[in-house]
C-alpha cells in the first residue's frame, strides 16, 4: 500500500509517495538518497542506522516511516550546519576514531544526542551511551576519546 508521506529531514521538507511498510532506513536510503545512514544488521542490534528524531537517537531500521511524519529527522548528512562541521565530526576524524567508517554516522549521532542531554558526561556514561553502536575496527578507544575531547572543548568555552 502506498501513501504520501510528509517528512522533515535535515531541515528540508519532503513529500514522497512510498510503501507504508517501508522503514525509515529504507526510505532515507532509497527514496531520499541519504545513504549516510547505514544498514548493518537491520534488526536493531548494531546501531549503524541510528538517526535523530527530535534530537533523540532512533534505530531507523525499526522505525516505520509513517510514524515519524511531522517530526524533526536528522541524519549524518544534516549534522554540519552552514558548511560548518559539527565538533564531533571533526573530533572523530582528527582523533582517529574512524576506520572503516560504517558505524561512524550512527556513532556520531548517538554521541550528539548524549552531549545535547548531558554536555559533560563521564567516560562511563559515554561508553554506556554508545554501547548499542557496535564497532569492529577501533576497539572504541579513540571513539570514546573523540567524544570526551568535544566535552572538554565545550567546558573551556
Amino acid at each position: 500500500m502506498k501513501r504520501i508521506l510528509k517528512l522533515h529531514v535535515n531541515g528540508e521538507d519532503f513529500e514522497i509517495l512510498t510503501e507504508i511498510h517501508k522503514t525509515l532506513l529504507e526510505v532515507l536510503r532509497e527514496d531520499l538518497g541519504l545513504t549516510g545512514t547505514k544498514r548493518g544488521c537491520d534488526l536493531g542490534t548494531c546501531g549503524a542506522c541510528t538517526v535523530l528524531i527530535d534530537g533523540k537517537p532512533h534505530l531507523s531500521c525499526l522505525t516505520l516511516t509513517a510514524d515519524v511524519q511531522g517530526k524533526k529527522i536528522t541524519t549524518i548528512e544534516g549534522l554540519a550546519q552552514d558548511g560548518q562541521l559539527h565538533p564531533l565530526q571533526k573530533a572523530f576524524a582528527e582523533k582517529g576514531a574512524i576506520q572503516c567508517g560504517f558505524c561512524t554516522p550512527g556513532m556520531i549521532l548517538t554521541a550528539k544526542a548524549l552531549l545535547d542531554e548531558d554536555p559533560h558526561p563521564s567516560e562511563e556514561k559515554v561508553k554506556k551511551a554508545i554501547s548499542g553502536n557496535l564497532c569492529r575496527c577501533t576497539g572504541y578507544v579513540k571513539i570514546v576519546d573523540a567524544i570526551l575531547s568535544v566535552t572538554d572543548k565545550s567546558s573551556e568555552s
Binding site: E77, I98, G101, T104
Partner: peptide, 23 residues
C-alpha cells in the same frame, strides 16, 4: 605523523559511498 585518514571527513559526513550506497 599522526595524520587523520584521507577519507575520514567523508565518512564523518555520510559522503563516503559503500557498495550498498550505490545504485
Amino acid at each position: 605523523k599522526r595524520e587523520p585518514m584521507l577519507d575520514a571527513l567523508d565518512k564523518a559526513t555520510g559522503r563516503a559511498r559503500f557498495t550498498d550506497d550505490l545504485s
